[in-house]
């Protein structure tokens, strides 16, 4: 059981680390999609099928496509946006910061008195989940729906707003 988890974790972290270090934006997005698929595999391993389904649908399906569109819309050439002069030292500091955070978190995880042999986890069916969402969490579901609507309208307004180049003049 642990072997599967370790394999999923290594694949996910490897894909994410490769994505964050590639110079080409399209490669980054594709590798991150792989990493998100690995996270969905982890949800499946943990028995949260609905979360895995949502992860595949939203991250692998929708967000990766939206990011791909943003990359293509802001593309300028083959070597678009070459890195600046100080970017190498900044990358070194960033890796250092990431390693420090990982060290602190891993030490905390290793020292915490967590249960050594966990009980078999709670089983969740989609019917139960639907009952929870429509019963105790109905208000939160409505709020999230309103949030998504407002965010999407705001995104459209932001992205479609007139730039400095006066679109009327080109008609």
């Amino acid at each position: 059981m642990n072997t599967v988890l370790i394999l999923i974790a290594l694949a996910t972290i490897g894909a994410a680390a490769a994505a964050m270090s590639r110079p080409s934006l399209l490669n980054c997005v594709l590798l991150l999609t792989l990493s998100w698929t690995g996270i969905a595999a982890f949800y499946l391993w943990a028995g949260a099928e609905f979360a895995a389904f949502a992860q595949v649908l939203i991250y692998v399906g929708a967000i990766s496509m939206a990011v791909m569109f943003a990359v293509l819309l802001t593309r300028r050439g083959r070597r678009d946006f070459p890195p600046r002069k100080g970017s190498r030292s900044r990358a070194a500091y960033a890796v250092l910061a990431g390693a420090a955070v990982a060290g602190v978190l891993l030490a905390a995880v290793a020292r915490s008195p967590l249960a050594a042999s966990p009980a078999p986890g709670p089983a969740s069916t989609v019917r139960e989940l639907g009952g929870q969402l429509m019963g105790p969490h109905a208000a939160a579901l409505l709020v999230v729906g309103v949030l998504l609507t407002v965010a999407l309208i705001g995104a459209v307004v932001l992205a479609a707003g007139a730039g400095p180049e006066k679109p009327e003049a080109t008609r």
Partner: peptide, 8 residues
């Protein structure tokens, strides 16, 4: 994974 995201 969090550390990789932070470093990136």
């Amino acid at each position: 994974l969090f550390a990789v995201g932070l470093a990136g």
